[in-house]
């Protein structure tokens, strides 16, 4: 060892506390989404404990389940640096098709629809067009497809309905199975991001696509995979919606889930500029987004201003949960 390296070592001992502090700051968002949700729960409990009855919790969880599934798909796409504006529409179309073919095909029908929405997602990414414009277009196409296939009618579940309704009717600790399913998906996702090469590569390409390409990361394949996952989870979200509503229509529960899905991903700390996603936090993001309307009621806000308060609240929560460690530029 030369004198030179000793100097470097000395500098290290000085520099380490600073580095440690920076990384602690950067990881601040790991606590924030659960914290935000807990604070909100606490506030509602103080204002009106009735909202937190077993029944209330079950409602929140059932509402949160499809939002969480869509948000996880969205977070996957956000993580590779794109956005999927059509995932809720994919989900809606899947729901309608499923309601139509479930009586005839049962379990195989479910598999077929999940395969279909996965392929729709993959096709969307296969055309190399900027995702915002592209998915904005497919959003319209898919919404029309949903209207046409359902003939603008509400399709009620008939035979084989128990195949999907179990997701809603079976409760585990006040909470319907659909929510636990979504939580399980989040856990799988978290593990995939942490412990697989594909997950690591997705995060890398979201953070710096050029460097990822030059490091041999197969960015095109991974982007297609991310959109396929988003489409697939849109289909699973459709199952959860169908289970809860017992019917499907182009203007039913699933028709307005695009923005809640994005909001849940953002509240869960995902960054819109890519490379920053923690599926476990997205769970709390979805719970928060599902719970806010109830919290607003608990606050006694009048019907006219509920959208206003909802919007302000989402901005506030995203401000609290967004990581700014990446720099001064916030997109």
């Amino acid at each position: 060892m030369t004198d030179h390296s000793e100097i470097l070592m000395n500098r290290t001992t000085l520099a380490k506390p600073l580095g440690g502090r920076l990384s602690r700051l950067a990881s601040g968002h790991v606590i924030a989404p659960p914290l935000v949700f807990a604070v909100m729960l606490g506030a509602v409990w103080l204002l009106n404990p009735n909202y937190l009855s077993p029944f209330g919790i079950s409602i929140v969880a059932a509402t949160a389940a499809p939002i969480l599934l869509l948000a996880l798909g969205q977070a996957t796409v956000l993580n590779v640096g794109s956005i999927d504006l059509s995932n809720a529409a994919t989900s809606l179309l899947g729901t309608i098709l499923l309601a139509m073919i479930l009586p005839g095909y049962g379990f195989w029908g479910i598999l077929a629809i999940l395969a279909l929405v996965t392929v729709i997602g993959a096709i969307v990414a296969y055309a190399q067009v900027p995702s915002f414009a592209l998915t904005l277009g497919t959003l319209g196409v898919l919404q029309t497809a949903a209207l046409v296939t359902s003939d603008s009618q509400t399709i009620y579940l008939g035979a084989n309905r128990e195949l999907v309704s179990t997701l809603y009717t079976t409760n585990v600790g006040f909470v319907p199975l659909s929510f636990w399913l979504a939580v399980a998906v989040a856990l799988v996702f978290w593990a995939a991001l942490q412990f697989t090469r594909a997950g690591q590569s997705m995060t890398a390409m979201g953070k710096n696509e050029t460097a990822a390409i030059l490091s041999g990361v197969p960015v095109r394949g991974l982007r297609i995979a991310a959109f396929a996952v988003s489409g697939f989870l849109g289909g699973v979200a459709g199952l959860a919606i169908l289970a809860q509503a017992g019917s499907a229509s182009a203007s039913g529960i699933g028709s307005a889930l695009l923005l809640p899905g994005i909001a849940a991903a953002l509240v869960g700390g995902a960054s819109i500029s890519g490379g920053q996603t923690n599926p476990l936090n997205v769970i709390f993001g979805a719970l928060t987004v599902a719970f806010v309307p109830m919290a607003i009621q608990a606050l006694g806000v009048g019907a006219q201003s509920q959208s206003l308060v909802y919007g302000l609240f989402i901005i506030l929560v995203v401000a609290l949960t967004t990581t700014r460690s990446r720099g001064i530029v916030i997109k």
Partner: peptide
Amino acid sequence: IAGLAATRNIALT
């Protein structure tokens, strides 16, 4: 990849 840990940068390729 500036935002990624050194371990993961090394394991990327």
